[in-house]
Design a protein around this nucleic acid. Structure first.
Lengths: 248, 248
DNA sequence: CTTCCTGTTTGATCTGGGTCAAGGCTTTGC
DNA sequence: GCAAAGCCTTGACCCAGATCAAACAGGAAG
C-alpha cells in the first residue's frame, strides 16, 4: 500500500487551496471547524503511484509539499503528462467517482485530503469553496491551453526553454522571491518526465538541455541544479511574448 | 463592427449553459427573471472575429448556434487552436477583464450574452450558477487534457481520426441521435482550421484525410460531407481505448 | 575498493511530417 | 461566357526529432 496517514500540525497546511485560514478569517467559525475536522494527511515516497486511472477515488486533496504528475497512457505505452501538481494545487473532481489519470509522486509528497462525500456536502453549503475551486480550475484551464500551444507548435528547444521558465516561475512564486535577477533552483523532474511533459523523447530533452547550456541560456551544476542568468533571454528562447505571464 | 444585437424568442436559447429553464424548474422565479432580464443576443457571420486576445471583454456568453474557435498565435504567426466552442459551450471568464485568446466565428454564430458585472453579482447570489460553471469548466479541462495527449503523442493519422471522432460525437450528441450505426455530418472546419486544431499543416491534414478515405475509414462526399460506416474502426484509428468517452 | 543500477549523454541513422511548388475544383462577380 | 479568389489536393524534397546503440556518471550495496 503506497499510502500512509500521518499527523501534521494544523498550520502546516497553509497552502491548501481550500484556504482553511482564509475561510476562518472571513466566515463563520463552524465552516472552519467543518473543514478542519474532515481533513487528514497522506504522504507518499518519490516514485510511488498515488492512484491509477480508472481506480475508485473517494477523496479530493491538495498538495502540501512535493510534486505530483497526472499522466495519460495509450495502450502501446506512449505517455503524455497532462498535469503537474505543485504545492497548493488541487487534485480530484467533485462529482466524479473514478480517477481519469494516473497520479504519481515524482518527489516525496504530502497531501491534505478530504473524503469526497462530506467535502461535496460542504461545498453545497459553503459557496466560498465552490467559488475558490472554480477560480483554480479556470487557472488550470489557462495553463492547459498554454501547454497546448507548446505541444502543438513549439520546437524542441522552445519546449525545453518554456518548461524551465515555467518551473523557475512557480519556484520563485512559491518562495515569494523577486522574479528578477539570477534564478537558482533544482529541476524536480527527470529527463524522461520532462519528455513526457513536452511530447518529446528523453534523448531530445537531453540534447536540447545541453544546447541551452552550451549557448549560455542556462548554467547547469550537476544534472539537476540550474541557474538562469537572464530570465528574459530564457523567455525569448521559449518563444513567449515578453512577460510570459509572470505573476506579480 | 462585427457585432449586431438581435431579438430571439426566449425559448430559442434552450441550450444556454446557464440553463434558464432548468433554473426556472428547480428554483425560485426571481432567479429566472434576473437571468432573463440581463441576457441579450449577438450574431456574427462566418469568419468574423468575435474578440481579439488582449481586448477588453465586458461580457460572458454561451453559444446558441454555430461554431467558434479560441486560438493562440505566436509573434511569428504560428497558430494553435486551444478551444472549440459548439452550441451550449460557454465563453468568458468571471473575474477577468481582458480576453486571453482570439475568438473567431467559423460558421455563422449566435451567442447568448450577459454583461459581466451583473452576471458576476448574480453568480455570488445564486450558487447554482457557479456550480454549473464549475462543472462545465471541469469538463473543458478534461477535454483539454485529452487534446494534450493528441498533440503530444499521436501521429498525424491518429490526430485526424481523433478529430473526426470528436466532431461526430458532439454532432450526434447535439442532435440526440443514437451513436451507433452510420454517422453522417458535415465537417464544420476548413483544412487549415483542422491543422490549427491538430498542430499540423494543412497539407498533412489533406493527405491524411485522403488516406483515411482511400482505406475506407471514412466516406467523403465533396470536401466536407462525411459518412462514418464504422465508428469503432474510426476509434481504433484514433488510438483511443474502446469507447473513447462517448457519452450516453 | 568494485559492482550494480539508474539516470544521463552523445553518436549514427532513419523517417514522419514540414516546406515549397504546381494544379484542380467551386463559387462569386462581371 | 470568362476571370479571380478560396479552398483543396498532390508531388518532390528536406530536416527536426525519433530511433537504435553505446558509453558515462554518481550513488548505494557489498
Amino acid at each position: 500500500m503506497p499510502m500512509q496517514e500521518m499527523q501534521i500540525a494544523h498550520h502546516d497546511c497553509g497552502d491548501c487551496p481550500i484556504r482553511h485560514r482564509a475561510v476562518c478569517a472571513r466566515c463563520e467559525a463552524d465552516e472552519l471547524t467543518a473543514l478542519e475536522q474532515m481533513k487528514y494527511y497522506r504522504s507518499y515516497q518519490a516514485g510511488q503511484t498515488v492512484i491509477w486511472s480508472g481506480d475508485r477515488m473517494d477523496f479530493v486533496a491538495s498538495v502540501v509539499t512535493g510534486i505530483a504528475t497526472l499522466t495519460q497512457t495509450m495502450e502501446d505505452g506512449r505517455r503524455q503528462m497532462v498535469g503537474l501538481l505543485l504545492p497548493s494545487d488541487f487534485l480530484g473532481r467533485p462529482g466524479r467517482t473514478t480517477a481519469a489519470y494516473d497520479v504519481t509522486a515524482t518527489t516525496d509528497l504530502v497531501m491534505c485530503c478530504f473524503r469526497k462525500k462530506p467535502f461535496e456536502d460542504l461545498m453545497l453549503a459553503t459557496p466560498h469553496i465552490g467559488q475558490r475551486l472554480l477560480e483554480m480550475t479556470l487557472d488550470e484551464l489557462d495553463a492547459a491551453r498554454e501547454w497546448m500551444l507548446l505541444l502543438g507548435r513549439k520546437t524542441a528547444r522552445e519546449k525545453i526553454a518554456s518548461l524551465i521558465a515555467i518551473i523557475a516561475r512557480r519556484d520563485a512564486t512559491l518562495r515569494l522571491k523577486a522574479p528578477k535577477g539570477a534564478l537558482v533552483f533544482d529541476l524536480p523532474l527527470t529527463r524522461e518526465e520532462m519528455a513526457d511533459y513536452l511530447g518529446l523523447t528523453l534523448e531530445t530533452v537531453s540534447r536540447q538541455i545541453s544546447a541551452l547550456k552550451r549557448d549560455g541560456v542556462i548554467v547547469l551544476d550537476g544534472k539537476r541544479h540550474v541557474t538562469i542568468p537572464d530570465f528574459d533571454r530564457l523567455l525569448e528562447e521559449a518563444g513567449d511574448d515578453s512577460d510570459g505571464g509572470m505573476p506579480g
